[in-house]
């Protein structure tokens, strides 16, 4: 126990989920941009049951990415509450996987596709450990699933936009987390990548994973998601189930 505690990145033991707690519960959540102090999210309330797929829908600047980042513990809450499997955010690192927007990575850094994807296993390895054969096997499976086999040795900077998106999604999957936070995975990708990612989302549903995904794509809300949360200017707006309020994306 002491050894495990010592080696985890967070410095504490990974707690088990609280019984019957939802995958994510957010109450009266407010957040602000640190530099400007401008409110980014106001009074957000949200409950995501285990195994649900929830879409965060809204125009640019609505607060979709900010909400995902608060849940991922990248941005602080100003007030309110957010719990993941019954625990405060930031205590279940191994259960939460985050897919950032592509522009947030330094793609010029010398790392190949396989190494980038292997980083998804780091949370389970912790300090000082190197990937074991089980980790490598999961990485190989994820590479195959995202159809990146022929690119595994390629530098991440030499990939196309769609390939980059698939590579970071593979990293998100390889973490084997129970709650996946996906920030616009279908944004600006080619048709082939869109098809592959859509298949992956279906597979995640079959595996009972919980997905919270920011998206602009309102065409497939009903077929691809169990619930949709609509945001405008950092506020949650009500809409008919799985139907965005008129003009929300205009």
């Amino acid at each position: 126990m002491f050894k495990k505690r010592l080696l985890t990145y967070s410095g504490c033991h990974h707690p088990p989920p609280v019984r019957d707690a939802p995958a994510l519960e957010v109450e009266d959540l407010c957040a602000q941009y640190e530099r400007s102090g401008v409110a980014a999210l106001r009074d957000i309330g949200l409950r995501v049951e285990r195994g649900e797929r929830v879409a965060l829908v809204g125009p640019n600047g609505a607060g979709k990415s900010t909400l995902l980042k608060v849940v991922a513990n990248l941005l602080p809450m100003r007030s309110g509450r957010a719990a993941i499997f019954g625990h405060p955010v930031g205590t279940c690192h191994h259960r939460v996987s985050f897919l950032p927007q592509r522009s947030e990575l330094d793609w010029r850094f010398p790392v190949n596709v396989e190494r980038l994807i292997t980083a998804g296993r780091y949370v389970h390895m912790g300090w000082l450990r190197r990937p074991a054969s089980a980790d490598r096997e999961l990485v190989a499976r994820s590479i195959e699933l995202l159809q990146l086999d022929h690119l595994r040795e390629r530098q991440i900077g030499d990939l196309s936009g769609g390939q980059q998106q698939r590579a970071i999604l593979a990293r998100t999957l390889v973490q084997n987390a129970e709650l996946l936070l996906l920030d616009e995975p279908l944004n600006a990708v080619d048709a082939r990548t869109r098809g592959i990612i859509t298949d992956v989302l279906v597979r995640l549903k079959e595996e009972g994973k919980t997905v919270l995904m920011a998206t602009h794509d309102i065409g497939r809300l009903e077929s691809d998601f169990d619930q949709a949360v609509f945001l405008v200017d950092g506020r949650q707006v009500d809409g008919p189930p799985n139907q965005p309020p008129p003009g929300i994306l205009s």
Binding site: F98, D106, F109, A119, Y122, R171
Partner: peptide, 23 residues
């Protein structure tokens, strides 16, 4: 050497590094 994988990750994707608990 000891912090190689962490330094590498934090250099190209600090957000992901923070999400998995790295300071």
């Amino acid at each position: 050497f000891v912090l190689f994988k962490e330094m590498e990750l934090v250099s190209y994707d600090p957000n992901f590094a923070a999400v998995i608990g790295l300071k």
